[in-house]
């Protein structure tokens, strides 16, 4: 009977050798992709871009998995983090909506950003709602990033696990 962890590492090393060009390019590209995702999310004024920013952020994890393998990718973003992040973004969104009702003492509607008194603190009336959409978009992007990454990890992980199981059965 072989130790499972040892066999796993051995099988992975045999199957794909990491190419130095691919890993170097991925190392160079991933920070820029994530920076660009942040720019798409919150860099421009006005609403919109949370979904696209989240998808671009998830694409950086897809590139990481393609270059460094699924086990290292899973170690970088564990499954429990995925579950926590995908609900955290939803709580951001729903919490801002509820905050609008609570802070306006039940006179404003759900997600009525203008009712939040944040613009009085900043002092510029034209920015009312802008800071709030900032938070809402970060919430949307976190959820989209977690869900897209989770879908890709599930699709890619099962394939490698099955192959390893078959190999172990054949070896023993």
């Amino acid at each position: 009977m072989r130790v499972r962890g040892k066999g796993k590492e051995h099988g992975q090393e045999q199957k794909h050798k990491r190419d130095v060009i691919v890993t170097t390019i991925a190392r160079l590209m991933i920070p820029f992709i994530q920076m660009y995702a942040l720019y798409v999310m919150v860099g421009t004024e006005g609403a919109g871009g949370g979904f696209q920013g989240g998808v671009v952020f998830a694409a950086s994890f897809v590139l990481f998995v393609t270059a460094f393998g699924i086990t290292r990718g899973r170690r970088r973003l564990p499954e429990s983090w995925n579950a926590a992040l995908s609900s955290l973004g939803l709580y951001f969104y729903a919490g801002i909506g509820l905050l609008c009702i609570i802070l306006s003492l039940f006179s404003a509607q759900y997600l009525n950003y203008g009712a939040l008194p944040l613009w009085e603190i900043i002092g510029r009336p034209e920015t009312r709602g802008l800071m709030i959409t900032f938070v809402v978009e970060v919430g949307i992007a976190i959820t989209v990033m977690a869900v897209f990454t989770s879908i890709f990890f599930d699709l890619a992980w099962k394939g490698e696990e099955d192959k390893e199981d078959n190999k172990e059965e054949g070896g023993e």
Partner: peptide, 25 residues
């Protein structure tokens, strides 16, 4: 531009990765 950016991110990026990961199985 918004629709085009979404299409490029989701259609050409994420969906292709998902389909190739599916095809591996």
């Amino acid at each position: 531009v918004d629709v085009g950016f979404t299409e490029a991110a989701v259609g050409a990026g994420a969906t292709t990765a998902f389909l190739i990961a599916t095809l591996a199985r």
